[in-house]
Design a binder for these strands. Structure first.
Lengths: 203, 203
DNA sequence: GTCTATATTCTGATAGAC
DNA sequence: GTCTATCAGAATATAGAC
């Protein structure tokens, strides 16, 4: 009786190559924009020929699909490490700042996640499920501080999206709209009835 | 002494061709996305050969540049026809709805105006000046209802951008975030100290 | 799993005739 | 101002050898 190996070196290597492909794609996307990603350049960067990529991804959009899924997974991972303060308003501000920083730290990623920049790309069901999961966690978090109505969730996402979008468009290297976050969170809390001291007096 | 002609038929025809080119480009952009615009298809649609377009535009990005400028000019034209109510909050809501409707009625246009979808396109000084003009008019309008601080302007643009962005991304054919506008305007007015009755009680 | 070779189509742009 | 001809290159994707 031969013992089964406890590591699958083939699978590990395969996963490593897949990782290299995605990293190269991200590098190109950040440098020249999402639409500038080409199989040719991905291959060139990792010392492969373009057709070899098809052993790992069925198509170029399959690469985008993996990027889409991993972006939303990063949101989940990032937000799940947060140690929230007890006070509701402070917790909301912490959440807002974390998501804002995540979104504004990578324009290409944010475009892939939230804008229809690649017109013929639609996430697969599996990839979309990760985004739905991330949204569900945000909803659970808001429920935890007393926000339950659908319209209030829409309000929250609009406030965040607006600050992020303006930051990208008009002050990509600054903090002009990030500074508005305490104010936006206060406005949100006042509107939906979350009590507590204003976030802008302290400190 | 021969009289000068009071019309320049040559210039008129030239302008008409330029118009045809831009209309074709818009059609493609709306149908398949901004990045799908090609000189080949523009030419095909108006019964020309691709090289002929260079008699009217120096490059493909020059076409985008004209589209950028005319988009911002449309904002100016659109908002300047508005007959605002006297009451400040009502006036702000009218403005917000007009701009929201403008932005959400054409995804490609909004991407060209406000997102960096075409990575190697940067508007010329002349085209950018139109955008600056539009922004100046919005600033003047807000000043007219008592909003003067830079941070308050940033707040206003963030609220609008957020609603527009979420509408595009998550409910492109509906009104889910448009319904939030009265609420958003009320929140804004409360925050910056514009008096008046809530926009959500009446009607 | 990676390669070579290739298919097919498209890209923006220029030269020069008419 | 529009055309033909052409450039020089890039795009995604497939077939089949190794």
């Amino acid at each position: 009786m031969t013992a089964l190996p406890n590591r699958d070196r083939r699978a590990e290597r395969r996963e490593a190559t897949r990782r290299e492909i995605l990293d190269a794609a991200w590098l190109i996307a950040r440098r020249d924009g999402l639409t500038a990603v080409t199989l040719r350049e991905i291959a060139g960067r990792i010392g492969m020929r373009p057709p070899s990529l098809y052993s790992h991804f069925d198509s170029k959009n399959a690469v985008y699909d993996a990027m889409f899924a991993e972006s939303w997974q990063q949101v989940i991972d990032e937000l799940s490490t947060i140690d929230y303060p007890d006070q509701e308003r402070a917790a909301l501000l912490t959440e807002a700042e974390a998501y804002f920083d995540f979104a504004t730290s990578d324009l290409a990623r944010n475009q892939l996640m939230n804008q229809r920049v690649i017109h013929d790309f639609e996430p697969t069901e599996a990839a979309y499920a990760v985004a739905v999961d991330a949204y569900g966690r945000m909803r659970d978090f808001l429920r935890g501080v007393g926000v339950r109505r659908e319209a209030d969730l829409d309000l929250w996402t609009a406030l965040l999206a607006g600050a992020i979008n303006q930051q990208h468009a008009n002050d990509p290297s600054g903090k002009r709209w990030r500074r508005q976050l305490p104010r936006l969170v206060d406005m949100f809390c006042d509107e939906v009835g979350i009590p507590g001291p204003s976030l802008r007096r302290a400190k």
